[in-house]
Design a protein around this nucleic acid. Structure first.
Lengths: 175, 175
DNA sequence: GCGCGATCGTTCGGGGCCGAACGATACTGT
DNA sequence: ACAGTATCGTTCGGCCCCGAACGATCGCGC
């Protein structure tokens, strides 16, 4: 099977990693994890920028606004704190995002039935329709950026990243 | 070898994916690429937040400021446009980041020798020392978040993500 | 009942981030 | 030479983002 430095790795990407080793080789670094993690960010940044400019921009939706709407579409109405956590943003940020979504009639806030502190957020029918309209376009580009991956590689990628995600959650929660 | 739904995938992560299928199953979506890509973002967001709060916050460095400094440390002085591209930010953003880095004496801008439009950015000795001081700490956490990955899995992860990165670059550049 | 600590969402200040517009500079063809 | 075009970094407006501080509300112990 393909190793980490097979011919499918573009020359300049391997060169970049060589440069890092050359410049920081005297530091006691675990380059294997360094390369794994740094490539997560490189890929995430590249894909996110691609998605924002090709799919989200014409819908006038920020990344976070779309994620929030997506979460509401899939998991239904919920309180702010869980919504923020699920969307990967803080409560303070969610307030701003919700303001935008409410102004455009894509989501709504309503008081909790019994707890005066809490707020229940819900997507409007318009908001849900927006997700259903955007997701196929979004997914086309997800398929596009993974076109050179075999089915097995896509599954491996998801699998390995789930492991990382679980570890981070554990570390952040317990120590 | 481990499949995408092995016992190492935490139950709630698999549940989340099941929920997506249930809510959006009627849409014509390629769930394999959907899961692969969405896990890139989940992992990237989680790791980035972790790094910012555990390593970067005490150094009073934003993520982008550190990336810029890192790029300068490894690849040496260069012009703004290539530095911005390498750091994954736009030129407008880099101006703001550079302002912060210059105020703290970590980097410096100087006029290009022959081309009056261009600016050459360089890390100061202080800036380079900062990278060398922070990187080991940063790398400890890179190793931490990948502690449950085998060496082969870390290499696979980097390898697969390089493929994605290359594809995005090609798509954005050519069409 | 009633303080008191915990928890909720919001607000605020500072900065990151982008895309568009801009001024300055360099290159091109004629 | 020089007008037109391209490219550079910066500025600007608007939004996103976080962490800290805040007011409102709840639940617990007494």
């Amino acid at each position: 099977m393909a190793g980490p430095f097979s011919s499918t790795d573009r020359a300049d990407l391997r060169q970049a990693e060589h440069d890092v080793r050359r410049a920081l080789g005297q530091l006691p670094l675990d380059f294997r994890s360094l390369l794994a993690v740094s490539n997560i960010f490189r890929a995430a940044t590249a894909v996110r920028n691609h998605m924002e400019s090709t799919v989200l921009a014409k819908e006038r939706l920020s990344w976070s606004a779309f994620v929030v709407l997506f979460v509401l579409r899939v998991w239904g109405p919920q309180e702010s704190h869980s919504l923020a956590k699920e969307a990967g943003i803080t409560g303070g940020t969610l307030t701003g995002v919700m303001k935008s979504l409410e102004e455009r009639g894509l989501a709504r806030r309503q008081a909790h039935a019994t707890d005066g502190r809490r707020v229940v957020v819900n997507a409007t029918a318009t908001g849900r329709r927006a997700v259903d309209r955007i997701m196929p376009r979004f997914n086309e580009h997800e398929a596009l950026v993974t076109r050179d991956l075999s089915d097995a590689e896509s599954d491996q990628l998801a699998h390995i990243l789930r492991k990382v995600l679980r570890t981070v959650d554990e570390v952040d929660a317990r120590g």
